[in-house]
């Protein structure tokens, strides 16, 4: 808040200069109103005091009662936003599924959802970015094992090698059982450690 910042350069815009009867500039008087280091002149000058009182009257008239945002009912807005989002076609990359003679494809975002869910089956794991790249070029993907890059965050204090191993196993299983997607390179990156969400806090003596 400006209350704590040093005084800004005064009157950057000469057009806005408006002088009170005492010769002080109104914009500056208002900017300084309410600060602990207010110009001593303002405290006694009738023109300055009236100007400050006018601003305070305005503020008192418009300042909203302190309604916490949490009390606002957002149900309708959230529903409308998500309805619109789900109707939007956001065609992503398609991945080939199955054998070489098949013609089945899946959107990367859909396959990624399955893989993220699989990763999060492992306790203490939250999945972030999940990119699945089929062999071939970006414009002409070919059939074959896809490369997966998955970012995860892991709860503090967990054994990372064990956790990553469990994530990889879960991914391979889900790719095979739920998608029929052959996985090649599987790159799991721990991007952060997070606080275990559901653990009860330590009680202090």
């Amino acid at each position: 808040m400006a209350m704590n910042t040093p005084y800004p350069p005064e009157n950057p815009d000469d057009e806005e200069l408006e002088l009170l009867a005492c010769g002080r500039d109104l914009a500056t008087v208002w900017e300084h109103a309410g600060r602990p280091d207010t110009d001593p002149h303002t405290a006694t000058c009738p023109s300055c005091r009236q100007a400050v009182a006018d601003l305070e009257h305005l503020r008192a008239a418009v300042l909203p009662p302190a309604a916490p945002p949490a009390d606002i009912d957002t149900t309708a807005v959230v529903r409308r936003v998500m309805d619109a989002v789900r109707l939007e076609l956001r065609p992503g990359r398609t991945l080939p599924l199955g054998e070489a003679d098949e013609d089945s494809w899946i959107y990367e975002s859909v396959a990624a959802r399955t893989l993220r869910t699989a990763a999060e089956q492992v306790p203490g794991v939250l999945a972030g970015s999940c990119r699945i790249t089929p062999p071939g070029s970006r414009t002409h993907p070919t059939r074959g094992p896809s490369t997966v890059h998955l970012g995860v965050t892991v709860a503090y204090g967990q054994d990372l090698p064990d956790t990553i191993r469990a994530v990889r196993e879960s991914l391979v299983r889900a790719a095979r059982q739920h998608l029929g997607l052959a996985l090649g390179d599987l790159d799991v990156t721990v991007t952060d450690l997070h606080e275990p969400p559901s653990q009860p806090r330590e009680t202090r003596p």
Partner: peptide, 15 residues
């Protein structure tokens, strides 16, 4: 994390 997922098309994360 949610923003990364939403950017990749995860509607639930965006919700």
């Amino acid at each position: 994390l949610l923003v990364v997922r939403a950017a990749e098309g995860d509607e639930e994360a965006f919700e």
